[in-house]
Write a protein that binds this DNA or RNA. Structure first.
Lengths: 117, 117
DNA sequence: AATTAATATAACTAATAGGTTATGGAACAG
DNA sequence: CTGTTCCATAACCTATTAGTTATATTAATT
């Protein structure tokens, strides 16, 4: 048994990091953190057309960060933060590895000290 | 006094997330976690030309994730993980906010329960 | 001084991103 | 039915990205 990731399917780090690389999309996600929102609601604060926001939502959907519902004519966007765990996991794994390199360096430096004594 | 960020200058989240969105660049960073490396050393494992790697390094430099040194003709790349803290900070802040929204929802649900009693 | 090695830069290409306006379609409201 | 609201899609534009090959630059070697 092998732990593959926190989300179903392969963790698409490219898509997640890429989705997070745009300030409009980060703002959308932040807004969605307080609850579902319709496309128009999301578009309102931005100096941007409705289709532009729809496109951003599609990018977020492909990254798995957003799902869409149905409520009358509205297709409210809902946050799914799970894929962010993939990003966090990569960063933490990186930090762990990086730190261990540092530890090795520390060990090496300790060795060198001993030789000096 | 206000805490602006963990790195000097404005935390360029766009550049950092964008830099991390490419698998080649993540691999380069991972390699650099074990120590400096020359452009050729970095290019070797990839089926990719040297100029392509130089370009990736430039992207990483602009994101502040890599600095370049000088050693004879080599210009070794060195990891600077600090800007990753900006990404981590955004994700943690997001998680915090998201969680608090959940707490609010919990509180609301508790309220609704009470009304039901 | 000439050659080699390591890297950068230029010029080009194809694909993708991020925006626009215009239009289409589904779900209501009257 | 008719019109309106909400959203998606199409077609288009421009800029950026990620790669290429070819060439220039810089430092070391002989």
């Amino acid at each position: 048994m092998e732990q593959i990731g926190y989300t179903s399917g392969p963790p698409n780090l490219d898509a997640v990091f890429s989705a997070l690389a745009d300030p409009t999309r980060r703002a959308i996600l932040t807004k969605l953190a307080s609850g579902e929102a319709s496309v128009n609601e999301l578009a309102e604060p931005f100096d941007m057309s409705q289709p532009a926001v729809s496109k951003h939502l599609k990018v977020l959907e492909k990254a798995g960060l957003v799902t869409r519902g149905t409520d009358r004519q509205r297709r409210p966007a809902k946050l799914n933060a799970a894929p962010m765990q993939d990003a966090v996991a990569w960063l933490e794994e990186f930090k762990r590895f990086w730190t261990s390199s540092f530890d090795q360096l520390d060990a090496l430096l300790e060795e060198l000290k001993k030789v000096d004594e």
